[in-house]
Each structure stands twice: as C-alpha cells, then as structure tokens.
Design a protein around this nucleic acid. Structure first.
Lengths: 240, 240
DNA sequence: TGTACATCAGTGAACGCGCGTTCACTGATGTAC
DNA sequence: TGTACATCAGTGAACGCGCGTTCACTGATGTAC
C-alpha cells in the first residue's frame, strides 16, 4: 500500500505541527523559561513520554521554536517589502522593515523576547540550526541599504569596528564598512526602541504615543545610514 | 544591656547583607529565572527555612536584587560623572554615562539582563519599590542633556510622542518634549547597542571591536540629541 | 545581681508540586513474500 | 489474497530531582522587675 505510508507520514507531520503550535502557544503565554514538554503533552492530550517520538528533548523543541520565530518575523518582513510599490527606495523599504518588525513584536512579545531579549538560562542555541533563519532579516537590511554604500565615506574607525578581512561582513557583502556599521547602528536603535516599548522600560508616564515615538526614531535611524547630502542612486528616485 | 540589642541588630543586618550578596552571586551565575531560596540557603550553610526570617519570599528577594542592581549601576554612573573635570559639558557627560553603563553591563551581565532584558517570567516588580532606584540614571541623563533643551526646536510630533500635560515628562522636568524625545531615543540607541553586544545578537563575525563600535554609536547618539548648529550654552564650552 | 518571662534565630521534617527522561509494554500500521 | 514479521505510535509507571513554603521545635539572646 503506497498510500498507507503517505497516511502515516501525514499523521506524523500533522502531529509534529501540532506540537510546534502548542509549543508556540505556551511560549507566548508563559515565556521560554517555562516551556515544558509535559505541559505541551498535556495540552495535546497525550502521555508526556509520547512527545519523545517527535522531539529529542526540551531543548530541541526550544530550538525549533526559535527557528520558527525567526522565520515568522522574516516572513512578515518579506511580506511587507513585497507590498511596496516596485521598485522602492531604501528609505521606504527600511521604514517598512521596521514597521513590520514592530508590528510582529507587539503581536508576538514572547517570541520577540526569545530572539532579541535576554538569553534563555541553561540553553545554548546551536548556531548551525538558528543562523539560516536568524540572518534573513539582517540580509534584507543589507540588501535594502546597499544603495547607501559609499566607500569614500568609510572611516578608519568603521573598519576597526567591523574588521575588513574577506571573512568579515564587509568582505562577505562587498559593501564598505561604513554603511554596514551605520546600518547595524540604525538597526540597534530600532531594536532598542522596540525593546524599551515592549518591556516597558520607561519610567512612569513616558511616552504616550508609541507609534509617533517609533516614527520619529525611524527618521533618526535613517539619518544615521543615509548619506549626509542628497544622494544620486539608481533606485532611490523611484517612489510611486 | 543596650549594646546587646546592637549586637543582635548588627548580626541581623550582617546576615541580611550576606543573603543579598549570595543572591547577587547566584543571579550572576545562573540568571534570574533560576534564582532559588533553597540554593541561596545552601550556599550560606543554613536551613532553607531559616532564610524566611530575613526574606518574605523568593519574589521579595528578587525585588531587592533588582533594586540593588539599579543602585549599583547608578552608583557606577555617578562615580564616572564625579570624576569628570568640573564643570563638564553635556557631550563628555553623556559619553561618561554611556561608557560607565557599558562597563557595568559587561561586568554584570545578568544584572543588566535583569533590568534591561526580557521580564522575569511569573514575576512582576512592584513599581513603588523599584522606581526610585530605577529612575536614577534616567534622571542623570535628563540633567546632563538639559543644556540641549530648545523649545523652538520642539515639533508637534515630539509633543504627541511624549504628551505635554503637567503629569507627563515635559511637565515634570520643565524641559521641552523635543530634547526629551531625542534624549530617550539616544538612550535607546545606547541600550540597543549594549544589548546586542552583550546578548551577542550579531550574526557570525560581526563586529570585531566592540569598543570602537560603541564609540561610533555614541557619536551618533549625540548627533541625535545635540542641536543641529553650534550651540551657545552656559555650560557647554567648559572642557578642560 | 538574680530570676521569670518574652522574643528571636535557626533546625529539620514534611507537604505538594512539576519537571525531564527512561523503560517495558500493547496494539495498530505497514511490508515482504 | 493471506500470512509472518517488522516497524512505529502511544501508554503508564517509575526514577530522581529541585523547588517554595509551612510548622512545631529547641536553644540562645534580651528585658522587666
């Protein structure tokens, strides 16, 4: 029976997906440190030992959830970029990335905490599994800000901060250390702003309108990456 | 015996301090989520129940440690400011605050995570206990950046982002919403940079020299708060 | 200075809890001939 | 199409662990007279 194997396999991946779904739900409700295989099994109505048919260990489930979170964020970002009028310049693209990240962060706070917050205690993510999904947004950023590359603006400090060998980011991307350093700084500003809002690190009664605040912060982030003077570039002028 | 009461009280506060010390050590070694009264008691060589003579509950110990962390950071910052040539302008003062915070963060990573990282699961800090210590650094920042206040530069968006009633930050500090918004943004940039370094959120091989990177980020943060044109101010010119 | 009493620090056993993980097992599903 | 065997999903009991917190207790320290 050829179809039968298909059924078993289908069941298997259906349950695998169920486990991930419930895991994500628990992550969202209780946070990563409280993620428990037993609780997930309970929610699925199966014996806790049965989960081990699908998942090696608690840590492996956590790894899968981290990868899923990275992918979920990156999908949201890619979607937002795809919705832009084509071709879009670096500024609207950057803004779209930030707004999509912000939207995703406030709708998935625990998943955001998982990938951009403090590390989960007693857990080390295996880089070979998390890096591919984890660099998707970063790669988009590099791609989007590439038109702002300007080797003449690169300073010695930029090179020192990032390194400039062939194994380093400048070597890998072919961009100058200046844009890269400024781009990372701008992104740090964005993440710092989102983190502060999400973890409510502000003291009492600051600020009132988070969207207006983020909007202004984006302008400041763009001022960091953008060339100081009006910039001639093949793709910048296109804003339908 | 008047001295005798003194002895008991002295013992008491000595042991209280010991508990905090060991608690801080555990925090630094295992992180907040893993903080356990039993483990602290074990380390002190006393029965786990004995700790309850000094601390109401695990959560209360955590609260004390959070307050201690805020105070430790704020002390470090105040120290750094006190070491500056007097009177120091906003730029060197801001730089000193950032460098002190960075130094403190890398020497106290778990305490940094506690106050600037993701919230501890199943724990809500009582604001009336954490706010006084938690706002010390922020207040210093406001004080240091006050010379950059410039009501004429304030925009409608600044006011919208921060609110401008008497209960809001502008009303409380007497500064315009513009400096405040830009100051908070600059601070978010700083915290975002420190967080990214500390939690190693960078992909592979970025960046090489964290100090150079932070140094450049500080310049960008200052560009955000500083007035666009050379600024006349009573305290700015003093740089011995 | 001495005695009776109250306060306090610290003990150790116990409660009930949830966790990750292993193991021998049952019964169903799939495969080879 | 039927039978013998292998694979797989899922069970339930058990292991050992650490946790927060309570409780009745002992013995030392302090206080009032």
């Amino acid at each position: 029976m050829v179809a039968a194997e298909g059924i078993r396999a289908r069941n298997r991946s259906a349950i695998e997906a169920e486990i991930l779904r419930v895991g994500r739900e628990h992550l969202g409700r209780y946070g990563a440190a409280a993620l428990s295989l037993r609780a997930v099994a309970r929610d699925l109505g199966m014996a806790s030992s049965a989960v081990y048919r699908y998942v090696d260990s608690r840590d492996e489930l956590l790894t899968r959830l981290i990868v899923a979170a990275y992918d979920s964020l990156a999908d949201t970002v890619d979607d937002a970029l795809a919705r832009l009028p084509d071709p879009a310049g670096p500024d609207p693209s950057f803004r779209a990335i930030v707004l999509a990240t912000h939207r995703w962060a406030i709708t998935h706070p625990h998943e955001y905490a998982l990938i951009y917050g403090s590390p989960v205690p007693d857990y080390d993510a295996p880089p070979e599994r998390t890096t591919p999904a984890g660099t998707r947004v970063t790669n988009r950023l590099i791609q989007v800000l590439a038109p702002y590359a300007d080797p003449e603006r690169e300073t010695a400090r930029d090179r020192q901060a990032l390194g400039d060998g062939p194994d380093d980011l400048p070597g890998q991307t072919g961009l100058d250390a200046g844009v890269l350093r400024r781009g990372i700084t701008a992104w740090n500003l964005v993440l710092g702003t989102i983190t502060a809002e999400l973890f409510s690190q502000y003291g009492p009664s600051i600020p009132r309108d988070d969207d207006a605040f983020l909007d202004a912060a984006i302008d400041e982030a763009l001022a960091i990456v953008r060339p100081p003077r009006p910039h001639r570039s093949s793709s910048t002028s296109a804003r339908s």
